[in-house]
């Protein structure tokens, strides 16, 4: 075992333990870690915002390449900033409406294409009882149809319709269980990552043998 001499590793371990201390109860170390996260995130975001967006996408195009047309969205952007001045906050609506309107307009056909047509296309596959793929396709088809029926509340869930909705619930339950199991394992791998950081990087234990 050889303790790390890297101050950054010590800092990483300190904050890892500070956050884990929340398992006992909320405490000043956890609160400190929380606010350090906010501070580092904001500082990180501002530097990247300048380096990756402001400078290459606004300053260079306008002041070096002469794309003065970008002054118009800049004025709209300034109007958005006026949201913090109560008297002039209504001016921010122009930029918000431009953004929301464009986004909504683009959203209609794109959502139809990506979330509806593509999903339907992927569901309508050859159905057969002669191969594993064919059977899987049947399961997918029944699953999609019955879950959709379950979410259709304009008709009372009775009779055949109600039976189909019940099958839909089974699919949903299996789906939720699978998602839960997957999420737990993803979180556990993160925890294992932190433990390995403490054991290997900080304590210098050679776990690989």
């Amino acid at each position: 075992m050889q303790l790390s001499t890297n101050i950054w590793v010590w800092l990483g371990v300190f904050f890892t333990l500070s956050v884990l201390s929340f398992l006992y109860k909320d405490n000043p170390f956890y609160k400190l870690a929380e606010h350090v996260t906010v501070g580092v995130s904001i500082g990180y975001a501002i530097v990247l915002w300048w380096n990756l967006t402001v400078y290459p996408r606004f300053i260079i195009p306008v002041f070096e390449n002469g794309h003065f047309i970008l002054i118009i969205p800049a004025i709209l952007g300034l109007m958005m900033v006026l949201r913090i001045v109560p008297k002039w906050s209504w001016l921010s609506r122009y930029a918000i409406c431009f953004t929301v309107g464009g986004g909504a307009g683009m959203g209609i056909p794109r959502s139809m294409q990506a979330s509806v047509l593509r999903q339907l296309e992927a569901t309508m596959l050859p159905l057969s009882l002669n191969s594993a793929t064919g059977i899987n396709n049947i399961v997918i088809f029944i699953g999609v149809l019955t879950v959709l029926i379950y979410f259709f509340f304009s008709k009372e869930h009775k009779g055949v319709f109600g039976g189909a909705a019940k099958i839909g619930i089974w699919f949903l339950m299996v789906g939720f269980g699978a998602t839960f199991g997957y999420t737990v394992m993803a979180r556990l791998s993160l925890f294992i990552g932190r433990v390995l950081f403490i054991l290997q990087d900080f304590l210098g234990l050679n776990l690989a043998g």
Partner: peptide, 25 residues
């Protein structure tokens, strides 16, 4: 489980979400 029944449930939900986005837009 992840690729078949889970995907069927997710796909139906995605269809609903897609239609919801369209309506809201």
């Amino acid at each position: 489980i992840l690729n078949i029944p889970n995907m069927a449930a997710k796909r139906a939900m995605n269809l609903g979400i897609g239609l919801g986005i369209m309506m809201l837009s």
